[in-house]
């Protein structure tokens, strides 16, 4: 099945793109998807999402089809869903 990916702010900057699509096994869990993304996008991407102890940085929001989900909920994803990774922004 396919999952649509969207990225904002610094995550978008690191990847040099604001969207992507990934083919994954049916019924994949969120944490497994994030692991695949770390493998695909590399160390800098990983350092934004995870601290030195491998713990998820929860200030990076995860949005599944317009609803926020927590990393630790580890929701099951279905075919065609859109997953957005948002790094926090401020202002000034």
């Amino acid at each position: 099945m396919n999952i649509k990916l969207k990225f904002t702010a610094q995550i978008k900057d690191i990847l040099g793109r604001n969207s992507d699509t990934i083919e994954v096994e049916n019924g994949i869990k969120l944490k497994d998807l994030i692991s695949k993304l770390v493998t695909r996008y590399g160390k800098v991407f990983e350092s934004i999402l995870f601290d030195d102890n491998g713990l998820y940085r929860h200030s990076n929001l995860i949005i599944v089809n317009q609803s926020q989900v927590n990393y630790d909920e580890n929701v099951t994803l279905s075919d065609g869903v859109e997953v957005t990774l948002m790094s926090p922004i401020s202002g000034g």
Binding site: A9, Q10, I11, I48, R57, H58, S59, L61, S87, P88, I89, S90, G91, G92
Partner: peptide, 21 residues
Amino acid sequence: CLYPEHPVAWKRRFPVFGAVS
């Protein structure tokens, strides 16, 4: 609730147009 930890990637200077703000 939204940002439970201090954001690591945020930088004081960032790109923006006045029309966005």
